[in-house]
Design a protein around this nucleic acid. Structure first.
Lengths: 146, 146
DNA sequence: GTAATACCTAAACCTAACTTTAGGTCAAGA
DNA sequence: TCTTGACCTAAAGTTAGGTTTAGGTATTAC
């Protein structure tokens, strides 16, 4: 069992954030001894899941819902599974978007490298939007499609 | 040249957002005809870059800085290049984090599928944390490392 | 015995990025 | 003529996810 200060260091989260999560109901029926929170293995796995679901785009109130399902036992396995299946789609889509962002950034890195060499953007403007070097054209197209 | 309403539809952004970006200085010296904004190719590429830099984690005021560099001409190529190089690192790290999130989610999908089959988590608890099926153990380790 | 730590609560405060509101201009169509 | 629709501004309002403040308890260190 850990205190809030120890968990704060282990998870690199401010104490105020941990108390806020608790207040929002993210650790249903966490133990206390004379008022002091006791974080056990259950709360630590909860924190890992919180970070995961937060990064997947879920709001605190929906994470709370999930934690309540966990506290309710085996009858909520299907809901919990559905939630992760939904978030899987969302995160996969998000990664695809980030790959597109990354290709735009890679293109811009190349672009400014060329601009610095040339001292201006004249040659680049002549190549745009369809006569870029093959590699670069792929980045450009991916970043600009849709 | 496009009006704000046309750009709103083309980029799927509310008109209020476009006006907000303009007010924040994200379209330096955009043309107007009798008060009405005129979006040209420059502003459209700016919007693509705004979406890219926003997703890469930059704040509006930093994107404004970039747009000002663009308006200043060739003397700022090096700063612009440095910015994209920095954001490249950040986005690459972000994608690595999202892959970890995704492996946690994949693990949880498997976990609840098993829990539904079994009707409880007893067998799963016996397998944790080191005796999971090989494929799943890899997901679990990746999601729980650090 | 007193001072430093680590914990606690409730409530006020903060920030970024929008969004909404209230009030106004201008051009086209019925 | 009048009303509908697309544009405009300035300023106030909103939201999520915390953070800070103010005031208090309990344990250990000297």
């Amino acid at each position: 069992m850990y205190t809030i200060g120890q968990i704060s260091k282990l998870f690199h989260l401010p104490i105020s954030t941990l108390r806020y999560y608790d207040k929002e109901g993210l650790f249903p029926d966490m133990e206390r001894s004379s008022g002091i929170r006791k974080f056990g293995e259950k709360e630590m796995e909860a924190l890992r899941v919180i970070e995961c679901l937060k990064k997947s785009g879920l709001e605190i109130k929906d994470i709370k819902q999930f934690m309540e399902w966990c506290a309710q036992g085996s009858s909520t396995y299907p809901q919990r599974r559905e939630l992760f299946l939904r978030q899987k789609e969302i995160v996969e889509e998000e990664i695809r978007k980030m790959e597109k962002v990354l290709d735009m950034i890679r293109f811009k890195c190349w672009y400014y490298e060329q601009a610095i060499r040339d001292g201006n953007e004249d040659r680049l403007n002549e190549m745009l939007p369809n006569h870029l070097p093959e590699e670069i054209q792929l980045l450009y197209n991916h970043a600009h499609e849709d």
